[in-house]
Design a protein around this nucleic acid. Structure first.
Lengths: 236, 236
DNA sequence: CGGTGTTGTCAACGCTGTTGACAACTTTGT
DNA sequence: ACAAAGTTGTCAACAGCGTTGACAACACCG
């Protein structure tokens, strides 16, 4: 560690650090795939070690603890997300850019629920996260909002999307049995209740069972975008 | 179990079931306080048993598994929440009712982060949850929205508030050290970066560090309420 | 009073993240 | 080129977790 800042960075040393870097990347990728295949509960240090044909404790040479590994995995997922979003086309309306971003955030949560569930409330501090923040901020800034309002809506957008996507991700990591129970809760609970106790709920059973989470997600995103647009128009 | 539906419910039997019911309540209350005191990680079956001066495995006579216990605890927290919300005053505007509800949901997440974090994406199926659903649905129905739209906005409101409150709850359950790191991430990361790489983020550092989560929460809630109001006005 | 079902205890299983000692090997300094 | 220093990996082990099954003590029913 101390030698990192030493004056002579020999080529040999560089080689070593590159080797270590590569191993870190390999571990992150393996962890990503393991979590995707076996779920959040399946991602344990011992199983990851097995996957890499390495003793589990060796991983502690690459990451301080499991948390650090998870954050690295999440940043990797964000990098994939960014690649899918791609370049912002010339002249694209800022709201459409944000809609595309929201769509990819949702897709990541659905595709990799294990990782999303474990880190949706966290800050990875990794490079991919930084680029994502830059992209969203930049997009809101295009709307003509003040600096203060830009930040306010950036956070509202980011927290709302991550929070809602996190919910569906957490749910997806639970036992399939529990998921089924959760999905059927409306009919299970309200359909067989005395009429007088929960009249409003009973009156809306059909609608309650018919709605899906993605619709809700889009509605909240649109609500935030509409609020941003209105505030932008007011200040103009 | 089979005797529940038997014809003769003897008084003795009732006494026994009441005793068991009382113990369940006591366990839930103790778990609630334990989680509040020692955090989510501190709520283990063994420690809860210790608290109740009972062997840990005895708890499995009252709850199928830890998950069932947690859901009961969460429903208890919701019951407290409902009590704080109290009666809806005659003539209160539906938006103000929802603002009060959102405020109490936030307060619960801040006050009992451990429980909120563990179950924010779940359905407890308990009585308190049912009453909460009824209350929110009823309130949105007052706005004049269609049945379909009422349900749509009910879910948007519930999912958004629980999702955002869940984030802050999850964060609060982590090590204080990590929390501090997370809170300081803006200054830590962006302040010491080459100017060209993340220009928008750098330009907004002051605003990024100044904002707080409650402001974001209120902004999203207001955005959803405004959307509901607009849709209600359109259909009228 | 004997049979039956409930309540609580105990030991144990398999799993987790994590630590520290120790060996094998690479790179560095002289 | 050779010893010193540092890195990488293995192994055994620890403390803790949720959970199960066998068994004793007790309360209640007929």
């Amino acid at each position: 560690m101390a030698k990192d800042t030493a004056r002579a960075t020999t080529p040999a040393r560089t080689t070593r650090r590159e080797r270590k870097g590569l191993q870190q990347e390999a571990a992150v990728k393996a962890a990503f795939e393991l979590a995707q295949r076996d779920g959040a509960a399946g991602l344990t240090m011992r199983r990851l070690g097995e996957e890499l044909k390495v003793d589990a404790t060796t991983l502690y040479r690459l990451f301080r603890d499991k948390d650090e590994l998870l954050l690295a995995v999440y940043d990797h997922a964000t990098a994939v997300e960014l690649e899918e979003i791609g370049e912002v086309p010339e002249g694209e309306h800022w709201q459409d850019t944000l809609r595309r971003i929201a769509d990819r955030i949702w897709a990541t949560a659905v595709r990799s629920p294990a990782i999303a569930a474990l880190t949706f409330a966290r800050t990875t501090g990794g490079p991919a996260e930084r680029r994502m923040v830059e992209l969203i901020l930049e997009t809101f800034a295009r709307s003509g909002l003040s600096r203060e309002a830009t930040v306010r809506y950036y956070r509202a957008f980011a927290d709302a999307t991550l929070g809602l996507a996190g919910q569906v991700a957490v749910l997806a990591t639970l036992d399939p049995e529990i998921q089924a129970k959760d999905a059927a809760s409306w009919t299970r609970i309200y359909a067989h209740l005395p009429d007088g106790e929960y009249p409003t709920a009973r009156a809306h059973i059909a609608e309650l069972t018919g709605i899906d989470r993605r619709t809700i997600y889009d509605l909240v995103v649109e609500a935030v975008l509409a609020a941003a647009e209105r505030e932008s128009a007011e200040s103009a």
